[in-house]
């Protein structure tokens, strides 16, 4: 198996959204944020110039899990939480393929949390899209590992006493080499994030705030809807000062060295944080914590992007080196290894 080809292959003519759209009726609830994500992904993929024959989508269980059936690529709809494991096998066996994982907050962070963090630390060449709607949708409305404390659901009639995960912080803690967040209804922003994720060598983690209009409607309204969204979205751009709210507010270094939200007018320019995706993970970690919930100023965009050896490539290199050193495996020689004797 060769490394990922530098040139797209197997592509005849120009690809369009249609080439990635399966001939199946999409069956999410009307108004679900998943529709927008699906449309954005299908519209974005043609620009990669990669034949759908070389793309694999892998998903787990939950509403997000159905994604694979709607993509006209190779696809595996796996088991609950295990998509990163299946995808690790696929991507490691076949570095020539483009492997995408679609998961949710329950699938990826609860039952499959272990596989997620290990795929990230290994830097397997997979792109992970985590649809975070802060609720269990397919099982009809229990709280999820990203639901806020106090969340009243069917399984928490007196309010949840669980502290939620911050998916971005978790991915950073797992040493992910690419960590980003986007929002279901912002096609342009999501496309830009997907573009950067696709270009990243290794594991890319993209959290997508996704509205579940049936069981958790409006969870992200203060971030995704106008006009509040304009005040609360902190759009991260590498190399630029982190300013938001139409230039009124910024992320600044406070007196004790912690990041604070401040007014631009009263902040000395050298205190305004300049975003650096390649820099210290602590900056990205702090940016993940500008707010506890997506109801206050919250960062979207790429938090971190660094280079590290890609898992499958490193494994292939070991095979190459071993083959150079020992010669290609000779089965007869292997069977005869150690002490042998002949009976005549």
């Amino acid at each position: 198996m060769s490394d990922r080809p530098a040139e797209p292959d197997g592509v005849v003519g120009t690809l369009t959204k249609k080439d990635f759209t399966a001939d199946r009726e999409v069956r999410w609830c009307p108004g679900c944020g998943d529709y927008a994500i699906l449309a954005t992904v299908q519209s974005f993929l043609p620009e990669l110039g990669v034949s759908p024959d070389r793309i694999v989508f892998v998903s787990g269980i939950g509403c997000s899990g159905r994604f694979t059936y709607y993509m006209d690529t190779y696809g595996v709809h796996g088991i609950h939480g295990r998509a990163p494991a299946l995808a690790t096998g696929i991507a490691t066996a076949r570095p020539d393929l483009h492997v995408w994982v679609v998961t949710g907050d329950g699938d990826g962070l609860s039952i499959g949390g272990n596989h997620l963090i290990h795929a990230l630390r290994r830097n397997v060449n997979i792109k992970i899209l985590l649809f975070n709607n802060q609720i269990y949708g397919l099982t009809k409305g229990q709280y999820s590992p990203t639901s806020e404390e106090g969340k009243v659901t069917k399984s928490t009639p007196f309010g949840s006493v669980d502290h939620p995960f911050n998916p971005i912080a978790l991915a950073l803690g797992a040493e992910a080499t690419f960590v980003a967040r986007t929002i279901d209804n912002d096609r342009q922003h999501m496309t830009q994030v997907l573009r950067q994720a696709a270009a990243h060598r290794g594991a890319a983690f993209v959290e997508i705030y996704q509205n579940c209009n049936v069981f958790n409607d409006g969870a992200f309204d203060l971030l995704r809807e106008k006009p509040q969204g304009i005040h609360n979205q902190i759009r991260l751009e590498h190399g630029k000062p982190i300013v938001f709210d139409e230039g009124r507010r910024c992320v600044a270094v406070g007196d004790n060295g912690r990041l604070v939200i401040a007014d631009v007018e009263t902040t000395p320019p050298d205190r305004i944080v300049v975003h650096d995706v390649h820099g210290r993970p602590s900056l990205a970690f702090a940016l993940a914590h500008t707010s506890d919930r997506p109801t206050e100023p919250t960062c979207i965009g790429v938090f971190r992007e660094v280079e590290r050896p890609v898992y499958g490539e490193a494994m292939d290199r070991q095979i190459e080196l071993a083959t150079q050193r020992l010669g290609p495996g000779d089965l007869d020689q292997l069977l005869h290894s150690g002490d042998t004797w002949v009976v005549r």
């Binding site: 494991a85 299946l86 696929i90 490691t92 290990h118 095979i319 050193r325 010669g327 089965l331």
Partner: peptide
């Protein structure tokens, strides 16, 4: 490895099975 064998020590038994199936 010179037989092209890929071995992967997975994070758990579940992942090991999933990776092999992948």
């Amino acid at each position: 490895k010179n037989f092209g064998v890929r071995t992967l020590q997975a994070e758990d038994e579940i992942a090991a099975a999933g990776i092999a199936l992948g």
